[in-house]
Each structure stands twice: as structure tokens, then as C-alpha cells.
Computed example of a mutant assay.
Amino acid sequence: MTQGPSADPGVIDLLGLLAYAELGSFFRLADDAGLAPSLRTKGQLAGLAAAEQNHYQALRGRLVELGVDPEMAMAPFVGPLDSWNERTEPQSWLESLVKTYVGEGIAGDFYRKVAALADEDTRVLVEDVLAETERAEFVAEQVRAALEEDPRLAGRLSLWARRLVGEALSQAQAVAVDRPRLAALLARDEKVAEKAKKAGDSGLGDLAAVSRMFASLTEGHAARLTAMGLAE
């Protein structure tokens, strides 16, 4: 299958990256469902996993529409995402939930930022895929309940959330370096481009530019921590 003439290389990278991320989320949520402490939570997590599978299929379908082999589009991101997951292996069910919400949440904020600079169809699809209301409410509810039962968990989970953000930033930097055509989408953002120019960056795919991008996402991260009853 060949790439369609209208397919933006940066958009193909974005869709391939997000498709593999959603596939991974499906497996992790399915695993979490098996470890859930009650039948109710098992069922809720199974439903969330099914939603991630639907998101994966939607992204895969969009790649096919663009004349792109979905597996080839995802292949460059298997290594970086698998490496991130290995570095952030949860040690408990609660840590796994926090990872799903915080780690993948801040990465999702970055994907949205990039998608906003792509074509309208891509932006709408990415926004739909990354809508996390149901998942966010479930995780926040579970974490708050656990903290009420054992307030001592707050410190450990806050540190874990901070580590996840740092690892997510490292992941984004690695991807931007390896896939400059994805980072090149940011060149369409005049504010980011101007900051890079003033800082003397040679291109938007370098580490400094990606770091500045993530620095703008701290508001979303803080809101997630607050929702779970955790502090910075």
C-alpha cells in the first residue's frame, strides 16, 4: 500500500504514533481489569479498554483512507513507546491507574497540540480519540477513595505522578529527534516558531523546542493531580 498524494508526512507520523499508543492502552487497561478489586471496577475497566480498541480502529481506518499501511506507520514508534512503558512499570494497581491518567494524559495534551496544527479531519479525529472524560472520572474516583482509606498513599502517588511526567517528556524528546517530520508540524505554530528563533534553535525538532512545548502543558497536569486529590 502506498502513501496517498495528499498525506502530510507529519500527520502520518502523528496518526501512527497515536494508533500504537491506543493499542498499548487497550492491553494495559485490559490487564488492569483483571487485577481490579471488585466486579464493578473490573467491568468499568473492561469498558474503558473496549473504548481504546475502538479508538485504535478509528486511527487505523484513517491511515488506510490516506493510502498508508497502518503497521508501517506505527512501526517507528514501537521502540520508544515500549521503552517508556518498561521504564514506568507500575508496582500496584493504583500506580497503574495513575499512569493511565497522568502519564498518558500529558502525552495526549502534546498530541492535541500537534493535531491542532494539522488538517481539520485529523484534528477532529485526534480530539475524539483523546477525549478522556469517562476514564478521568473513573481514575480520580478510585484514587480519592484509596486516599480516604489510607492518606499515607498520597506522598508516594504524588512522587509517582511526577516521575511519569518526566518520563513522558523524555519520550517526546526521543520521538521528536527520531521523527523530525512530526516535530515539523510545530513550525505551523507562529508562537512556538518565534520562541525557537529567539532562543537560537536550529529547528523545532530539537530538545529545547520540545521542552518548551511541554512546559506549556503544566496546567493540564496540575488539574489531573487535583482531581485525584494529589498535590505537586
Rank of each mutant, 00 (worst) to 15 (best):
P90V: 10
A223Q: 13
G47R: 00
R163S: 05
Y111K: 00
V78G: 07
D69C: 05
A21F: 04
R156L: 13
V210R: 05
M72R: 15
G205W: 14
A46R: 03
A131V: 03
K113Q: 14
A146D: 01
V192E: 13
V210P: 01
Q173T: 06
I12Y: 01
D109F: 03
L186E: 03
E167H: 14
E148M: 07
E219Q: 12
E71Y: 13
S6D: 14
A145M: 10
D82G: 12
L66A: 14
S96F: 05
A46C: 05
L157W: 09
D109G: 07
G4V: 09
Q173S: 02
E127N: 13
G200A: 08
R28D: 14
Y20K: 05
E127D: 15
A30C: 06
S216C: 04
W93E: 03
V192C: 07
G166E: 13
G229L: 12
A208K: 11
S83A: 15
T2S: 11
A19Y: 01
A46F: 07
E89D: 07
G166P: 14
L17K: 04
I106L: 15
R62P: 05
G34W: 07
S170E: 15
K113Y: 12
V177T: 09
L97P: 04
G203A: 12
E190N: 06
Q91N: 11
A107L: 13
E52V: 01
A136L: 07
F26S: 06
L230I: 01
L182V: 07
L18G: 04
R156W: 07
R60D: 12
L97H: 00
V78A: 11
L130W: 06
G67K: 04
L153Q: 12
T226M: 10
V139E: 00
T100P: 02
Q53K: 11
E127F: 00
A227F: 07
L159A: 12
E104A: 00
A116G: 14
D8F: 04
M1A: 14
D69L: 04
A183N: 00
L117Y: 08
A183R: 00
E132L: 02
A51C: 02
L94V: 04
A174V: 10
N85P: 00
K197N: 03
L29F: 12
A215M: 12
T2D: 11
A174T: 13
E86M: 14
G16R: 00
E65L: 09
T100H: 11
G10R: 01
E134N: 07
G61W: 07
L81E: 08
G220Q: 09
D82H: 11
Q142G: 00
K195C: 05
P5R: 11
A21I: 01
G155P: 01
L207P: 01
A174W: 06
L35T: 10
A75M: 13
G67T: 08
R87Q: 09
L18P: 05
R162T: 02
A46E: 06
R112L: 00
L15H: 10
G4Q: 11
A154N: 04
G16Y: 02
R212V: 03
W93Q: 04
V98C: 04
A7V: 12
A231L: 11
R224W: 11
A51P: 01
V175I: 15
D69V: 00
L230H: 03
T41L: 15
R181G: 05
E120S: 10
G200V: 08
Q91A: 14
G200Q: 10
A193S: 14
E190K: 13
A7W: 03
